[in-house]
Design a protein around this nucleic acid. Structure first.
Lengths: 210, 210
DNA sequence: TTGCGATGTATCGGGCCGATACATCGGGGC
DNA sequence: GCCCCGATGTATCGGCCCGATACATCGCAA
């Protein structure tokens, strides 16, 4: 999962670890609080070993030049890495639909073709619907044998699940009908170079924020 | 975290692993989907080694008797285990306020004294408020440089954060003013036998479910 | 009677986390 | 001029937890 996120960010521009972590934290938002260095650096090493990225020692013309001596390491994606990124983007393991996985995939939707976007959105919806049904069962069937706090926890969970399903419904509707790429470039199946930075479409479901 | 959950469930009644897992899944609801056996059994072994629980081989008078031959293992909490549970319940590490940690603590609120409940609720609120502020910053400051999907993800995250803060506010208000244990038995500091099954108080914030 | 789904116990490799250590840089206080 | 502090930056280690996998029993239906 983190692998996909790193590859995606490095596709935009080369970066060093510290920067990567900050971008990761802001772009993944809710679904992934803040990546740990104890995860980041081993993962970077793994990606380097696999050949998806390269580590280049400290750019000499850095803004704060840093008198060498353990300079910062700049990570850059390779051609193989871009291919790997495309594969991961379109892949659909079960981990694609848990909180972290979905968040990362969603964050790169502007570089994903519409068919894949719909597949992921619908898979996520199914996942949350299952959670919702489970919670409804507990609340109706076992209402009596649970204490008040546990019940309240279930209620809050059910509320969040229902809300997320509604959110996903709106996104799916938007994707399907007109308002989604479609017009500009049609549906190519996962290009290695996805036209750089032309975000295909604004979704914008919510307009009811008070 | 899982340690606390297991100890808490075994305090109600002895159980074997399979049962434990199911109880775990329903009681922790949203904040902890379904515990893996690859986690559960090693943890049980750890608890046994520490002396918090005992493993007793297959109760002979089992409903489906199971003709011995690798019978089910029933786990039971020890006196030390109950002490440990009380300590964990009242402890306040940072992991107490992440999704999983908070969910587990909350699920046992009916066996937690009011002061601790308030401390945990407020700690969680602070945590979510920080997330909320971070998301607001991103949405106001970096609105232009993010693509539409990433923006939508942040918006949805902000919405969920605001909603959870409001939920916590209600719970905190309820705890503070009257509607909370107080009346029935005052505030003992973590009794080993917490009056078995007298849930101290129904919280019930939401009444606006359509 | 065969086979399948639920029940049940257990291990293994690996991802990810928090704590920790160490080093450099810019700036504010004195 | 000096020092300390907070932000920047790289890296490791122990440990929790997960998914995949293996194996065994039970009740039931085809």
């Amino acid at each position: 999962m983190l692998e996909l996120a790193i590859l995606g960010l490095l596709q935009e521009t080369p970066m060093h670890g510290y920067e990567l972590r900050k971008e990761l934290s802001t772009k993944m938002g809710t679904f992934r609080a803040a990546i740990s260095y104890g995860t980041l650096y081993p993962t970077l090493k793994r990606l380097r070993t696999a050949g998806w990225i390269t580590e280049s020692e400290s750019d000499p013309s850095m803004i704060p030049p840093m008198t060498s001596k353990r300079g910062r390491v700049v990570y850059k994606i390779t051609a193989d890495g871009k291919e790997r990124f495309a594969d991961l983007l379109a892949s659909a393991g079960p981990e694609t639909y848990d909180d972290a996985g979905f968040g990362v995939h969603f964050a790169f939707f502007s570089r994903t073709d519409r068919a894949t976007r719909l597949r992921i959105l619908e898979g996520r919806r199914r996942r949350i619907e299952e959670r919702r049904e489970g919670l409804r069962d507990v609340l109706s069937r076992a209402a009596g044998r649970l204490d008040a706090y546990t019940l309240e926890l279930q209620r809050h969970g059910l509320d969040a699940a229902e809300r997320e399903v509604r959110w996903l419904e709106e996104l799916i509707t938007n994707e399907r009908s007109g308002r989604a790429p479609a017009g500009s470039m049609g549906e190519i199946d996962l290009p290695a170079e996805p036209a750089a930075d032309a975000p295909p479409e604004p979704p914008r479901p919510h307009q009811d924020r008070p």
